[in-house]
Amino acid sequence: MSNHTKTILFKHSSKKSPLSGGVWKLVIELVIAIGAILMLLPVVFIFITAFKPDSEIIHFYSILPRHWTLENFREILENPAEVPIFRWFGNSVFISFMVTALILLVDSLSAYALARLNLPGKRIVFALIIATLMVPGQVLLVPVYLILNWLHWLDTPLALIIPAGAGAFGVFLLHQFFLGIPRELEDAAAIDGCSRFGIYRHIVLPLSKPALATLGIFVFIGSWNDFLGPLVFLDSVDKYTLPVGIALFQTSYAAEFGLTFAACVIATLPVLIVFMIFQKHIIKGISLTGLKE
């Protein structure tokens, strides 16, 4: 920085702001609070609108319903054959759990070996895995579809579970975390005759709970909200996951606004409850992904 610009900077900074720091802080917080309300309002609308009769949704009078009704929910719950929303919910829970379990298992095993064991050529293997971090999912869509077709896995949960285990992100994240665990503990265990798997199971895994939780949350949310995968790989309505099932309301029940919002509530409520309970962990998990480099 030249002397000239320096003087300009300090001249500028010496000007006292007309408002004191405290007032500015209050104004900023007020703006943040209004913004927070605006972010939440759309979600609140889903819940309120689900209790409106169709006529009030089509002719908008007020945010709150004039006549509160449970009709929309009744209609959905009474037609499990037509709108198998709980089936979709179960499918989503099953698939997301399996994906998370699979990824935590295979990624932690391989990350442990690549970070800790004396494997010949492991640097090359790790570099190869990391290189695929840049590959966008859509490039794999068509060939994976053809491979799944050949395996006869299309339209089964396997199509969404097994290929998800191939991603490199978890291996990378856990590898970096394992490198940070002090070696002394493992060395001591090895001297006591603990096998490599024993060290992984009884020392590395328990010490890595925060990293495993971060990865688990990240993977679970990703799988739960995956849209393109189930859209392409699933065919039968009763095998759908929640996102593609709910998307049917855009076409099959396009005119049924009340029904649509009731379905959205059923799909969103469990997510909101889980979010409220694990909020701290979820946000921490997501925010850590940017810092681990």
Partner: peptide
């Protein structure tokens, strides 16, 4: 505040899209 701004991320795209 952090939770409020983050909440929409948790909403599935089909729900958010329909809304």
């Amino acid at each position: 505040y952090r939770a409020a701004y983050f909440l929409p991320v948790m909403i599935s795209i089909s729900v958010a899209g329909l809304l």
